[in-house]
Amino acid sequence: MKLSAEHRAFAARLGHDFRRPELLVRALTHASIASPTRPDNQRLEFLGDRVLGLVMAEALLMADRAATEGQLAPRFNALVRKETCAEVARDLGLGEVLRLGRSEMLTGGRRKEALLGDAMEAVIAAVYRDAGFEAARAVVLTLWGDRVRRVKADARDPKTALQEWAQARGLPPPAYTEIARDGPAHQPLFTIAVQLTTGETEQAQAGSKRAAEQAAARALLTRMEKPHD
């Protein structure tokens, strides 16, 4: 199988020359366009998630030899979560080369965080199956760049951090409410409010509910942790 010009350009950005180009094509094929003769990327995604996890676990151990498991776990979660995979995918221009069915294309599939994150994991697995772990490790470390170095000592996601802050003060978990949903169906904008039982609240907007909740939680946590005069 020969790669198309756009797929060759993507492989070049990825930094891997595929001996079995069909692996890359499969990694970029979403279930919405799959057929008996055109397999989707779900099995590769499953494998790629594990390869990414091993690479990141090893990298974190090497980056901080004194860190405890309790310190490493949230950093690991920050590096392998879907949002980070989607961020790397956007940097690569992966959405431009995804093979999608018409319905997914019409609903903005090339920009969807879940699709991008899943495909990024599938691409990692494609490299692994094409050339082995060392090749996959080299690609992942290059793509993730200095994220390993920059990941904070406490890399908990904002929702978890806010909930733990509340629980430490004897408060129930914060409540999240969808205030509004604007924009076209293929590119919605969610407004989410988070509130503590003591009354403090913050709002945030984002292209997904999860991202808006995270942003609102971050804003409220920052406000609550700010020293008061």
Rank of each mutant, 00 (worst) to 15 (best):
S4V: 08
S4D: 07
R8N: 04
A12W: 02
R13G: 03
R13Q: 07
L14F: 04
L14K: 01
H16N: 06
H16A: 07
R20D: 11
L23I: 09
L24F: 02
L24G: 00
R26Q: 11
R26M: 08
A27F: 01
L28W: 05
L28F: 08
L28P: 01
H30Q: 05
I33W: 05
I33Y: 02
D40Q: 03
F46N: 13
F46V: 13
D49R: 13
D49Y: 07
M56A: 09
L60Q: 03
L60C: 06
L61Y: 11
L61V: 15
M62D: 15
M62R: 15
D64N: 11
R65N: 09
R65D: 11
R65S: 14
F76Y: 13
N77Q: 13
L79D: 03
L79N: 02
K82A: 15
E83A: 13
R90G: 03
V97N: 01
V97L: 03
R99S: 10
L100C: 00
L100V: 05
G101I: 02
M105C: 11
L106I: 01
L106K: 05
K112Y: 07
L116I: 12
D118K: 09
A138F: 05
G145D: 12
K152P: 12
K152R: 15
K152D: 12
T160C: 09
L162I: 10
Q163V: 11
G170K: 05
A175E: 15
D182G: 04
G183N: 02
G183H: 00
H186Y: 07
H186P: 00
T191A: 02
A193I: 10
V194Q: 06
V194H: 04
Q195N: 14
L196V: 11
T198P: 06
T198I: 07
Q203V: 11
Q203R: 12
Q203G: 06
A204E: 04
R210Y: 09
R210E: 15
A211R: 13
A211K: 14
E213Q: 15
E213T: 11
A215E: 13
A215N: 11
A215F: 03
A216C: 08
A216W: 00
A216Y: 00
A217H: 05
R223T: 14
